[in-house]
């Protein structure tokens, strides 16, 4: 499988064949390529609704990667959330999402 590394902006062009990675320039790249072949993982960023008119949506992201195949499920969860507390950057919006140990965290502070 030919792929482009998305770990860092370098965007190394790699290929992976039966778990053997070539074209990577770092360990992270190798791990990424291996995961892409078996279970691709992604960080998901979005927003959740708030009850504050000054900031109707709050940006959020997963604090780790989740299986790419579960993005749809995560988005359904995200779309149902409404934040009513003045959260700060880094606060957990939803813990252990879509059956992983990854949390959804706020990436901004509600002003």
């Amino acid at each position: 499988m030919e792929l482009v590394c998305i770990v860092c902006p370098k965007g190394c062009r790699m290929s992976v064949e039966n778990g053997v990675v070539t074209g990577n320039t770092c360990k992270k790249g190798e791990a990424f390529a291996k995961a892409e072949e078996t279970c691709p993982m992604r960080t998901v960023c979005s927003t959740v609704a708030t009850s504050f008119p000054s900031m109707p949506v709050l940006p959020v992201r997963t604090d780790g990667e989740i299986p790419k195949s579960r993005i749809g499920e995560l988005m359904r969860l995200i779309n149902g959330i409404e934040v009513t507390k003045k959260l700060r950057r880094g606060d957990v919006v939803a813990a252990s999402v879509v059956g992983t140990d990854v949390n959804l965290i706020a990436t901004a502070t509600i002003h």
Binding site: T47, A49, P56, V57, N79, I81, E82
Partner: peptide, 13 residues
């Protein structure tokens, strides 16, 4: 008819 936005992205469609 020249609406700009389709409503909220959130809150269950």
């Amino acid at each position: 008819g020249s609406f700009i936005l389709y409503g909220d992205t959130k809150k269950g469609g």
